[in-house]
Write a protein that binds this DNA or RNA. Structure first.
Length: 323
DNA sequence: CCAATTTGACCAGA
DNA sequence: TCTGGTCAAATTGG
């Protein structure tokens, strides 16, 4: 196997990523069974079961990708589009798999307009993943990701309870982007959707080609989260329990967000300081929604340490929960 | 008005 | 002929 330098870096990146997640989980599991530390109420435990599952999925995902690269790097090199070689899964907020369970090159089904690009379509990569909808988002947009899709068909599938939906990239015509996906609700578990992707995005909304591969964290998702955070910081008023009211309160943040697949399913409106859960000597704050105010949201914050003493030195990454 | 969705028709492969 | 995938006209919505 003649792996390119590019692929080697990609592989290394995946392995490092997996190791990082594994270590984090290891650190967490080392303290998990014990009762919550006194500075954290049970409701503010930073690594929820779902987050641990996410970490586990990340580990599995990274190693799956690494194995895929080892197994299929020569196959991938056949693809014309370099973006399609990453083996990276399209961004999906609640992927329960988070990695290509299967990736292969399909023989595109023939149809009249494919004659123009039949060879191209034959080379399109195909992979699947599963996504679980979160309760508060309901059925609407269970498969939303950062890409813009246009539905072009729906079919009742033999033996399946639910119809299959067909989506193509919104920019197929304008940017000649041939990415498609199919969404099939699972028969067994209606909260799970099987997603089948075919082709990588070549449009501008896809990850632009880079000089060096940067598989994690996902920059699009990070930008989205940082936008949310920026919005939060702009509009947020914070009232501390010691009576200090601070409109211009500034949370120190460590960008970029670590690319945990977002979990918006916690409810409760709390923010979890992911950066510090294992370093309790740093300041931590419990934030809860104060609903008694008008348009400008105010959050009640219980600081366990003097925020003014630590606020400028601590590094914090807030995992967005609800804004 | 334009873009997205819906839905029956159409097509190719098995 | 059946089935899955796609097309494209009609419809919907902003």
């Amino acid at each position: 196997m003649d792996m390119s330098n590019w692929e080697q870096k990609n592989l290394l990146s995946e392995l490092v990523h997996g190791l990082k997640a594994a270590k984090q989980l290891q650190a967490e599991l080392g303290t998990a069974p014990s009762p919550p530390p006194p500075w954290l109420s049970s409701s503010s435990l930073c690594l929820t079961t779902e987050m641990r599952e996410t970490l586990l999925r990340q580990i599995v995902s990274s190693y799956e990708k690494a194995i895929l690269m080892l197994n299929g790097s020569n196959v991938h090199s056949q693809t014309a589009n370099p973006v399609a070689n990453t083996g990276k899964v399209p961004e999906s907020p609640t992927s329960i798999n988070g990695s290509p369970r299967s990736e292969e090159f399909i023989d595109g089904g023939g149809s009249k307009d494919y004659n123009l690009s039949s060879k191209k379509r034959k080379m399109l990569p195909k992979w699947t993943e599963q996504v679980r909808i979160s309760p508060e988002r309901g059925l609407e947009g269970p498969h939303e990701d950062v890409f813009s899709w246009r539905k072009y068909g729906q079919k009742d599938i033999l033996g399946a309870k639910y119809p299959r939906s067909y989506y193509r990239c919104t920019f197929r015509n304008t940017q000649n982007c041939w990415a498609t996906k199919q969404v099939q609700r699972s028969d067994d578990d209606p909260t799970i959707f099987d997603l089948t992707y075919k082709g990588k995005h070549t449009c501008s909304q896809g990850t632009p080609p880079r000089d060096k591969p940067d598989t994690t964290p996902n920059t699009t998702l990070i930008n989205y989260q940082n936008d949310l955070l920026a919005n939060l910081r702009t509009n947020l008023s914070v009232r501390t329990t010691n009576g200090i009211e601070s409109d211009g309160f500034s949370f120190p943040v460590t960008p970029p967000f670590y690319s945990y697949e977002s979990d918006y399913g916690n409810g409760g409106g709390t923010f979890c300081d992911m950066g510090n859960y294992s370093r309790p000597s740093d300041f931590t704050g419990l934030i809860s929604t104060n609903t008694s105010t008008g348009s400008s949201p105010i959050f009640d914050v219980d600081f366990q340490f003097d925020p003014t003493a630590e606020i400028n030195t601590g590094l914090h990454t807030f995992l967005h929960d609800s804004v």
